[in-house]
Nucleic acid binder design. Structure first.
Lengths: 212, 212
DNA sequence: TACTAATAACTGACCAGTCAGTTATTAGTA
DNA sequence: TACTAATAACTGACTGGTCAGTTATTAGTA
Protein backbone atom coordinates (compact mmCIF):
# COMPACT_ATOMS: atom_id res chain seq x y z
CA UNK A 1 0.00 0.00 0.00
CA UNK A 2 2.37 2.60 1.25
CA UNK A 3 5.84 1.13 1.29
CA UNK A 4 7.75 4.30 2.05
CA UNK A 5 5.98 5.48 5.19
CA UNK A 6 5.52 2.22 7.10
CA UNK A 7 7.73 -0.72 6.29
CA UNK A 8 6.65 -4.02 7.76
CA UNK A 9 9.84 -4.30 9.82
CA UNK A 10 13.32 -2.87 10.21
CA UNK A 11 16.54 -4.83 10.11
CA UNK A 12 18.30 -3.98 13.35
CA UNK A 13 20.44 -6.97 14.06
CA UNK A 14 22.69 -5.22 16.56
CA UNK A 15 19.92 -4.01 18.86
CA UNK A 16 17.71 -7.07 18.86
CA UNK A 17 19.33 -9.22 21.54
CA UNK A 18 19.35 -6.36 24.03
CA UNK A 19 15.73 -5.56 23.29
CA UNK A 20 14.66 -9.18 23.56
CA UNK A 21 16.41 -9.53 26.92
CA UNK A 22 14.80 -6.32 28.17
CA UNK A 23 11.34 -7.53 27.17
CA UNK A 24 12.00 -11.00 28.57
CA UNK A 25 13.14 -9.50 31.85
CA UNK A 26 9.75 -7.89 32.30
CA UNK A 27 7.74 -10.92 31.26
CA UNK A 28 9.78 -13.39 33.29
CA UNK A 29 9.62 -11.14 36.34
CA UNK A 30 5.85 -10.99 35.95
CA UNK A 31 5.07 -14.61 35.14
CA UNK A 32 8.04 -16.76 36.00
CA UNK A 33 9.71 -19.02 33.49
CA UNK A 34 7.13 -21.67 32.80
CA UNK A 35 4.19 -19.30 32.36
CA UNK A 36 6.03 -16.79 30.21
CA UNK A 37 5.04 -17.02 26.52
CA UNK A 38 7.70 -16.53 23.91
CA UNK A 39 5.11 -14.95 21.67
CA UNK A 40 4.50 -12.29 24.30
CA UNK A 41 8.19 -11.64 24.81
CA UNK A 42 8.65 -11.29 21.05
CA UNK A 43 5.69 -8.97 20.67
CA UNK A 44 6.86 -6.74 23.49
CA UNK A 45 10.32 -6.63 21.94
CA UNK A 46 8.71 -5.55 18.68
CA UNK A 47 9.36 -8.59 16.49
CA UNK A 48 8.00 -12.03 15.79
CA UNK A 49 8.55 -15.19 17.75
CA UNK A 50 10.51 -16.72 14.91
CA UNK A 51 13.01 -13.88 15.00
CA UNK A 52 13.78 -14.58 18.65
CA UNK A 53 15.17 -17.90 17.48
CA UNK A 54 17.62 -16.10 15.25
CA UNK A 55 19.28 -14.77 18.37
CA UNK A 56 18.67 -17.44 21.01
CA UNK A 57 18.63 -21.24 20.81
CA UNK A 58 15.87 -21.95 23.33
CA UNK A 59 13.60 -20.30 25.82
CA UNK A 60 15.97 -21.35 28.58
CA UNK A 61 18.73 -19.60 26.70
CA UNK A 62 16.77 -16.37 26.83
CA UNK A 63 16.22 -16.92 30.55
CA UNK A 64 19.95 -17.39 31.04
CA UNK A 65 20.67 -14.14 29.22
CA UNK A 66 18.17 -12.34 31.40
CA UNK A 67 19.75 -13.62 34.59
CA UNK A 68 23.21 -12.65 33.36
CA UNK A 69 21.92 -9.26 32.33
CA UNK A 70 20.32 -8.64 35.70
CA UNK A 71 23.34 -9.89 37.62
CA UNK A 72 26.12 -7.93 35.93
CA UNK A 73 25.37 -4.48 37.38
CA UNK A 74 24.83 -6.02 40.82
CA UNK A 75 28.27 -7.56 40.81
CA UNK A 76 29.78 -4.23 39.90
CA UNK A 77 27.82 -2.60 42.68
CA UNK A 78 28.97 -5.05 45.33
CA UNK A 79 32.58 -5.21 44.15
CA UNK A 80 33.04 -1.48 43.91
CA UNK A 81 31.48 -0.72 47.26
CA UNK A 82 33.41 -3.38 49.16
CA UNK A 83 36.71 -2.74 47.42
CA UNK A 84 36.58 0.98 48.10
CA UNK A 85 35.45 0.78 51.72
CA UNK A 86 37.87 2.82 53.75
CA UNK A 87 36.48 3.43 57.20
CA UNK A 88 34.86 1.39 59.94
CA UNK A 89 32.15 -1.22 59.42
CA UNK A 90 29.08 0.98 60.01
CA UNK A 91 30.12 3.26 57.18
CA UNK A 92 30.48 0.35 54.78
CA UNK A 93 27.13 -1.15 55.76
CA UNK A 94 25.28 2.13 55.40
CA UNK A 95 26.86 2.64 52.01
CA UNK A 96 25.92 -0.86 50.86
CA UNK A 97 22.37 -0.51 52.10
CA UNK A 98 21.98 2.82 50.36
CA UNK A 99 23.17 1.38 47.07
CA UNK A 100 20.97 -1.67 47.51
CA UNK A 101 17.89 0.47 47.98
CA UNK A 102 18.78 2.64 44.99
CA UNK A 103 19.53 -0.22 42.61
CA UNK A 104 16.88 -2.73 43.63
CA UNK A 105 14.27 -0.07 44.15
CA UNK A 106 14.69 1.30 40.66
CA UNK A 107 15.03 -1.84 38.57
CA UNK A 108 13.49 -5.21 37.90
CA UNK A 109 16.15 -7.02 39.90
CA UNK A 110 13.62 -7.75 42.61
CA UNK A 111 11.42 -9.45 40.06
CA UNK A 112 14.32 -11.53 38.82
CA UNK A 113 15.21 -12.55 42.36
CA UNK A 114 11.65 -13.69 42.91
CA UNK A 115 11.74 -15.57 39.62
CA UNK A 116 14.96 -17.34 40.59
CA UNK A 117 13.45 -18.39 43.91
CA UNK A 118 10.28 -19.60 42.26
CA UNK A 119 11.95 -21.57 39.48
CA UNK A 120 14.94 -22.87 41.42
CA UNK A 121 13.77 -26.48 41.49
CA UNK A 122 12.84 -26.64 37.84
CA UNK A 123 15.95 -24.81 36.64
CA UNK A 124 18.62 -25.48 39.23
CA UNK A 125 21.34 -24.29 36.92
CA UNK A 126 19.96 -20.76 37.09
CA UNK A 127 19.79 -20.84 40.86
CA UNK A 128 23.41 -21.95 40.75
CA UNK A 129 24.42 -19.03 38.54
CA UNK A 130 22.54 -16.58 40.72
CA UNK A 131 24.14 -18.01 43.82
CA UNK A 132 27.69 -18.46 42.58
CA UNK A 133 27.96 -15.19 40.73
CA UNK A 134 25.99 -12.90 43.01
CA UNK A 135 24.58 -14.09 46.32
CA UNK A 136 27.56 -16.03 47.63
CA UNK A 137 29.89 -13.20 46.62
CA UNK A 138 27.85 -10.62 48.49
CA UNK A 139 27.44 -12.80 51.58
CA UNK A 140 31.12 -13.70 51.50
CA UNK A 141 32.26 -10.11 51.11
CA UNK A 142 30.06 -8.85 53.92
CA UNK A 143 31.10 -11.77 56.12
CA UNK A 144 34.79 -11.05 55.65
CA UNK A 145 34.27 -7.35 56.30
CA UNK A 146 32.56 -8.36 59.54
CA UNK A 147 35.35 -10.78 60.40
CA UNK A 148 37.94 -8.08 59.81
CA UNK A 149 35.99 -5.75 62.07
CA UNK A 150 35.94 -8.46 64.74
CA UNK A 151 39.73 -8.69 64.57
CA UNK A 152 39.90 -4.93 65.04
CA UNK A 153 37.67 -5.29 68.09
CA UNK A 154 34.84 -3.40 66.43
CA UNK A 155 32.30 -6.21 66.36
CA UNK A 156 31.25 -8.67 69.03
CA UNK A 157 32.04 -12.39 68.72
CA UNK A 158 29.69 -14.47 66.58
CA UNK A 159 29.52 -16.30 63.24
CA UNK A 160 30.36 -13.68 60.57
CA UNK A 161 28.36 -15.49 57.92
CA UNK A 162 25.24 -15.41 60.08
CA UNK A 163 25.89 -11.74 60.79
CA UNK A 164 26.02 -11.17 57.03
CA UNK A 165 22.67 -12.88 56.60
CA UNK A 166 21.20 -10.81 59.42
CA UNK A 167 22.42 -7.65 57.72
CA UNK A 168 20.99 -8.51 54.31
CA UNK A 169 17.81 -10.38 55.18
CA UNK A 170 15.44 -7.52 56.11
CA UNK A 171 16.24 -5.65 52.91
CA UNK A 172 15.73 -8.77 50.85
CA UNK A 173 12.43 -9.54 52.54
CA UNK A 174 11.38 -5.95 51.93
CA UNK A 175 11.87 -6.52 48.22
CA UNK A 176 10.12 -9.88 48.20
CA UNK A 177 7.26 -8.30 50.12
CA UNK A 178 6.93 -5.60 47.50
CA UNK A 179 6.93 -8.10 44.66
CA UNK A 180 4.63 -10.63 46.26
CA UNK A 181 2.14 -9.03 48.62
CA UNK A 182 1.85 -5.38 47.65
CA UNK A 183 0.18 -6.29 44.31
CA UNK A 184 -2.59 -8.04 46.26
CA UNK A 185 -3.28 -5.12 48.54
CA UNK A 186 -0.74 -5.39 51.35
CA UNK A 187 0.70 -2.11 52.64
CA UNK A 188 4.20 -1.39 51.42
CA UNK A 189 7.37 -1.23 53.48
CA UNK A 190 9.30 1.86 52.51
CA UNK A 191 12.68 0.39 51.61
CA UNK A 192 14.52 3.51 52.63
CA UNK A 193 13.02 3.81 56.13
CA UNK A 194 13.36 0.08 56.56
CA UNK A 195 17.02 0.26 55.68
CA UNK A 196 17.72 3.10 58.12
CA UNK A 197 15.87 1.64 61.08
CA UNK A 198 17.30 -1.80 60.42
CA UNK A 199 20.92 -0.66 60.49
CA UNK A 200 20.37 1.69 63.44
CA UNK A 201 18.99 -1.19 65.45
CA UNK A 202 21.28 -3.95 64.31
CA UNK A 203 24.51 -2.02 64.69
CA UNK A 204 23.85 -1.50 68.39
CA UNK A 205 23.83 -5.24 68.84
CA UNK A 206 26.66 -5.84 66.41
CA UNK A 207 29.26 -3.41 67.67
CA UNK A 208 31.28 -3.83 70.83
CA UNK A 209 30.43 -1.35 73.58
CA UNK A 210 33.88 0.22 73.21
CA UNK A 211 33.56 0.94 69.48
CA UNK A 212 29.93 2.07 69.65
CA UNK B 1 -4.38 -62.42 37.68
CA UNK B 2 -4.94 -62.48 41.39
CA UNK B 3 -8.10 -60.57 42.19
CA UNK B 4 -8.27 -61.47 45.86
CA UNK B 5 -4.85 -60.36 47.01
CA UNK B 6 -4.57 -57.09 45.09
CA UNK B 7 -7.77 -55.47 43.91
CA UNK B 8 -7.31 -52.84 41.29
CA UNK B 9 -8.56 -50.14 43.59
CA UNK B 10 -10.34 -49.59 46.90
CA UNK B 11 -13.27 -47.30 47.53
CA UNK B 12 -12.21 -44.94 50.27
CA UNK B 13 -14.15 -41.80 49.63
CA UNK B 14 -13.54 -40.29 53.06
CA UNK B 15 -9.76 -40.44 53.00
CA UNK B 16 -9.12 -39.35 49.43
CA UNK B 17 -9.18 -35.55 49.73
CA UNK B 18 -6.67 -35.54 52.57
CA UNK B 19 -4.38 -37.91 50.70
CA UNK B 20 -4.59 -35.88 47.52
CA UNK B 21 -3.77 -32.67 49.37
CA UNK B 22 -0.82 -34.33 51.09
CA UNK B 23 0.56 -35.57 47.77
CA UNK B 24 -0.10 -32.23 46.09
CA UNK B 25 1.70 -30.41 48.92
CA UNK B 26 4.87 -32.32 48.11
CA UNK B 27 4.62 -31.92 44.35
CA UNK B 28 3.72 -28.23 44.46
CA UNK B 29 6.53 -27.53 46.93
CA UNK B 30 8.94 -29.28 44.57
CA UNK B 31 7.79 -27.89 41.24
CA UNK B 32 5.60 -24.88 41.78
CA UNK B 33 2.07 -24.66 40.43
CA UNK B 34 2.54 -24.50 36.70
CA UNK B 35 5.10 -27.30 36.46
CA UNK B 36 3.26 -29.69 38.75
CA UNK B 37 1.53 -32.48 36.83
CA UNK B 38 -1.88 -33.63 38.00
CA UNK B 39 -1.00 -37.13 36.87
CA UNK B 40 1.97 -37.15 39.23
CA UNK B 41 -0.08 -35.85 42.14
CA UNK B 42 -2.70 -38.51 41.53
CA UNK B 43 -0.15 -41.30 41.24
CA UNK B 44 1.56 -40.29 44.45
CA UNK B 45 -1.81 -40.18 46.18
CA UNK B 46 -2.43 -43.71 44.93
CA UNK B 47 -5.21 -43.14 42.41
CA UNK B 48 -5.82 -41.98 38.87
CA UNK B 49 -6.00 -38.48 37.54
CA UNK B 50 -9.69 -38.79 36.77
CA UNK B 51 -10.43 -39.64 40.38
CA UNK B 52 -8.91 -36.37 41.55
CA UNK B 53 -11.72 -34.64 39.67
CA UNK B 54 -14.26 -36.42 41.82
CA UNK B 55 -12.96 -34.40 44.76
CA UNK B 56 -11.69 -31.14 43.26
CA UNK B 57 -13.02 -28.97 40.46
CA UNK B 58 -9.73 -27.76 39.02
CA UNK B 59 -6.01 -27.86 39.58
CA UNK B 60 -6.22 -24.40 41.13
CA UNK B 61 -8.78 -25.82 43.53
CA UNK B 62 -6.26 -28.40 44.66
CA UNK B 63 -3.67 -25.66 45.07
CA UNK B 64 -6.11 -23.68 47.21
CA UNK B 65 -6.71 -26.69 49.42
CA UNK B 66 -2.96 -27.18 49.81
CA UNK B 67 -2.43 -23.58 50.85
CA UNK B 68 -5.28 -23.80 53.34
CA UNK B 69 -3.92 -27.06 54.65
CA UNK B 70 -0.43 -25.65 55.07
CA UNK B 71 -1.70 -22.45 56.65
CA UNK B 72 -4.06 -23.81 59.28
CA UNK B 73 -1.50 -25.19 61.72
CA UNK B 74 0.64 -22.07 61.32
CA UNK B 75 -2.21 -19.83 62.35
CA UNK B 76 -2.79 -21.96 65.42
CA UNK B 77 0.89 -21.76 66.23
CA UNK B 78 1.08 -17.99 65.98
CA UNK B 79 -2.22 -17.34 67.74
CA UNK B 80 -1.51 -19.62 70.64
CA UNK B 81 2.00 -18.33 71.26
CA UNK B 82 1.03 -14.67 71.11
CA UNK B 83 -2.18 -15.03 73.09
CA UNK B 84 -0.48 -16.92 75.89
CA UNK B 85 2.60 -14.70 76.15
CA UNK B 86 2.91 -13.61 79.74
CA UNK B 87 6.31 -12.09 80.32
CA UNK B 88 8.51 -9.47 78.67
CA UNK B 89 9.15 -9.24 74.94
CA UNK B 90 12.42 -11.22 74.75
CA UNK B 91 10.70 -14.26 76.18
CA UNK B 92 7.93 -14.07 73.62
CA UNK B 93 10.33 -13.64 70.72
CA UNK B 94 12.52 -16.53 71.80
CA UNK B 95 9.47 -18.72 72.14
CA UNK B 96 8.18 -17.73 68.68
CA UNK B 97 11.55 -18.29 67.06
CA UNK B 98 11.87 -21.70 68.66
CA UNK B 99 8.45 -22.73 67.38
CA UNK B 100 9.21 -21.33 63.96
CA UNK B 101 12.37 -23.37 63.67
CA UNK B 102 10.62 -26.52 64.87
CA UNK B 103 7.59 -26.21 62.60
CA UNK B 104 9.17 -24.85 59.43
CA UNK B 105 12.26 -26.98 59.83
CA UNK B 106 10.25 -30.18 60.00
CA UNK B 107 7.57 -29.65 57.38
CA UNK B 108 6.98 -28.61 53.81
CA UNK B 109 5.80 -25.16 54.82
CA UNK B 110 9.03 -23.67 53.54
CA UNK B 111 8.36 -25.21 50.15
CA UNK B 112 4.85 -23.81 50.12
CA UNK B 113 6.13 -20.36 51.03
CA UNK B 114 8.57 -20.50 48.15
CA UNK B 115 5.77 -21.67 45.87
CA UNK B 116 3.55 -18.77 46.93
CA UNK B 117 6.35 -16.29 46.23
CA UNK B 118 7.04 -17.85 42.86
CA UNK B 119 3.45 -18.06 41.68
CA UNK B 120 2.15 -14.84 43.22
CA UNK B 121 1.76 -12.97 39.93
CA UNK B 122 0.03 -15.79 38.13
CA UNK B 123 -2.28 -16.67 41.01
CA UNK B 124 -2.68 -13.47 42.99
CA UNK B 125 -5.64 -14.89 44.85
CA UNK B 126 -3.35 -17.40 46.53
CA UNK B 127 -0.86 -14.74 47.51
CA UNK B 128 -3.81 -12.87 48.99
CA UNK B 129 -4.93 -15.87 51.03
CA UNK B 130 -1.38 -16.49 52.25
CA UNK B 131 -1.01 -12.83 53.18
CA UNK B 132 -4.41 -12.20 54.72
CA UNK B 133 -4.67 -15.42 56.66
CA UNK B 134 -1.06 -15.89 57.74
CA UNK B 135 1.63 -13.30 57.01
CA UNK B 136 -0.27 -10.15 57.91
CA UNK B 137 -1.55 -11.79 61.09
CA UNK B 138 1.93 -12.76 62.20
CA UNK B 139 3.42 -9.37 61.33
CA UNK B 140 0.53 -7.60 62.98
CA UNK B 141 0.73 -9.68 66.15
CA UNK B 142 4.47 -9.22 66.51
CA UNK B 143 4.14 -5.51 65.75
CA UNK B 144 1.53 -5.00 68.46
CA UNK B 145 3.58 -6.98 70.95
CA UNK B 146 6.48 -4.64 70.14
CA UNK B 147 4.25 -1.58 70.43
CA UNK B 148 3.01 -2.75 73.83
CA UNK B 149 6.59 -3.23 74.94
CA UNK B 150 7.38 0.29 73.77
CA UNK B 151 4.57 1.62 75.95
CA UNK B 152 6.04 -0.26 78.88
CA UNK B 153 9.39 1.35 78.14
CA UNK B 154 10.96 -1.98 77.22
CA UNK B 155 11.70 -1.19 73.58
CA UNK B 156 13.27 1.86 71.96
CA UNK B 157 11.24 4.18 69.73
CA UNK B 158 10.80 3.12 66.11
CA UNK B 159 8.18 1.76 63.69
CA UNK B 160 6.81 -1.44 65.28
CA UNK B 161 5.88 -2.90 61.92
CA UNK B 162 9.45 -2.50 60.67
CA UNK B 163 10.71 -4.00 63.92
CA UNK B 164 8.43 -6.97 63.26
CA UNK B 165 9.91 -7.42 59.81
CA UNK B 166 13.42 -7.18 61.21
CA UNK B 167 12.59 -9.89 63.71
CA UNK B 168 11.12 -12.29 61.17
CA UNK B 169 13.24 -11.64 58.08
CA UNK B 170 16.45 -13.53 58.91
CA UNK B 171 14.52 -16.68 59.78
CA UNK B 172 12.50 -16.42 56.60
CA UNK B 173 15.59 -15.89 54.48
CA UNK B 174 17.18 -18.87 56.19
CA UNK B 175 14.28 -21.01 54.98
CA UNK B 176 14.32 -19.57 51.46
CA UNK B 177 18.06 -20.16 51.37
CA UNK B 178 17.57 -23.78 52.28
CA UNK B 179 14.91 -24.29 49.64
CA UNK B 180 16.64 -22.38 46.87
CA UNK B 181 20.41 -22.52 47.15
CA UNK B 182 21.27 -25.55 49.26
CA UNK B 183 20.00 -27.93 46.54
CA UNK B 184 22.54 -26.41 44.13
CA UNK B 185 25.47 -26.81 46.46
CA UNK B 186 25.41 -23.77 48.74
CA UNK B 187 26.37 -24.38 52.39
CA UNK B 188 23.41 -24.47 54.73
CA UNK B 189 22.57 -22.03 57.48
CA UNK B 190 21.68 -23.94 60.62
CA UNK B 191 18.27 -22.51 61.43
CA UNK B 192 18.71 -23.04 65.13
CA UNK B 193 22.07 -21.26 65.45
CA UNK B 194 20.81 -18.56 63.14
CA UNK B 195 17.78 -18.02 65.32
CA UNK B 196 19.82 -17.78 68.52
CA UNK B 197 22.48 -15.41 67.22
CA UNK B 198 19.87 -13.30 65.47
CA UNK B 199 17.80 -12.69 68.59
CA UNK B 200 20.85 -12.22 70.80
CA UNK B 201 22.09 -9.49 68.49
CA UNK B 202 18.84 -7.83 67.62
CA UNK B 203 17.50 -7.63 71.13
CA UNK B 204 20.48 -5.53 72.20
CA UNK B 205 19.47 -2.91 69.68
CA UNK B 206 15.77 -3.32 70.29
CA UNK B 207 15.60 -3.00 74.06
CA UNK B 208 16.06 0.20 75.98
CA UNK B 209 19.25 0.39 78.06
CA UNK B 210 17.16 0.31 81.24
CA UNK B 211 15.27 -2.90 80.40
CA UNK B 212 18.30 -4.69 78.98
C1' DT C 1 -29.69 -55.81 41.16
C1' DA C 2 -28.65 -50.99 41.70
C1' DC C 3 -25.35 -47.82 42.75
C1' DT C 4 -21.04 -45.31 42.52
C1' DA C 5 -15.83 -45.02 43.19
C1' DA C 6 -12.50 -45.32 40.20
C1' DT C 7 -10.15 -46.09 35.86
C1' DA C 8 -8.14 -45.26 31.38
C1' DA C 9 -8.78 -43.81 26.97
C1' DC C 10 -9.89 -39.68 24.94
C1' DT C 11 -10.38 -34.53 23.51
C1' DG C 12 -9.18 -29.94 22.79
C1' DA C 13 -6.29 -26.18 23.76
C1' DC C 14 -1.97 -24.51 24.14
C1' DC C 15 2.78 -23.58 23.00
C1' DA C 16 7.99 -24.24 22.08
C1' DG C 17 10.39 -24.68 18.28
C1' DT C 18 10.72 -25.00 12.78
C1' DC C 19 10.90 -23.46 8.19
C1' DA C 20 9.35 -21.89 3.57
C1' DG C 21 8.52 -17.75 1.91
C1' DT C 22 8.63 -12.39 2.18
C1' DT C 23 10.73 -7.99 2.53
C1' DA C 24 14.24 -4.50 3.88
C1' DT C 25 18.78 -3.46 2.89
C1' DT C 26 23.19 -3.44 0.67
C1' DA C 27 26.54 -4.10 -3.04
C1' DG C 28 27.43 -4.08 -7.66
C1' DT C 29 26.71 -2.11 -12.35
C1' DA C 30 26.02 1.34 -15.80
C1' DT D 1 21.78 8.72 -9.92
C1' DA D 2 18.88 4.72 -11.16
C1' DC D 3 18.39 0.09 -11.63
C1' DT D 4 19.18 -4.80 -10.28
C1' DA D 5 21.12 -8.91 -8.04
C1' DA D 6 22.30 -10.85 -3.86
C1' DT D 7 21.88 -11.19 0.97
C1' DA D 8 20.03 -11.86 5.38
C1' DA D 9 16.60 -10.14 8.80
C1' DC D 10 12.15 -11.21 9.64
C1' DT D 11 7.44 -13.23 9.42
C1' DG D 12 3.70 -16.34 10.33
C1' DA D 13 1.68 -20.65 9.47
C1' DC D 14 2.64 -25.16 10.87
C1' DT D 15 4.06 -29.40 13.69
C1' DG D 16 4.74 -32.43 17.38
C1' DG D 17 4.25 -33.02 21.98
C1' DT D 18 2.21 -32.07 26.43
C1' DC D 19 -1.35 -31.85 29.68
C1' DA D 20 -5.82 -30.14 32.09
C1' DG D 21 -10.06 -31.68 32.05
C1' DT D 22 -14.00 -35.19 30.16
C1' DT D 23 -16.32 -39.44 29.55
C1' DA D 24 -17.37 -44.29 28.48
C1' DT D 25 -16.67 -48.18 30.96
C1' DT D 26 -15.31 -51.38 34.70
C1' DA D 27 -15.29 -53.14 39.20
C1' DG D 28 -16.21 -52.96 44.18
C1' DT D 29 -20.12 -52.57 47.49
C1' DA D 30 -24.71 -52.72 49.71
Amino acid sequence: MNPTSSPKFRRRKADRPREIVAAALQIFAEKGFASARLDEIATRAGLSKGAVYLYFETKEDVFRAVVEHAIAPEIDLARAAIAAHPGPLPDLLRLLAERFVAVVGGSAVGGVAKMVIGEARNFPELARVWHDRLVSKVIGAVASAVAAAQVRGEVRPGDPRIYALQIIAPLLVGVIWRETFVPVGAPEFDLSSLSVQHLDTLLVGLLTPESA
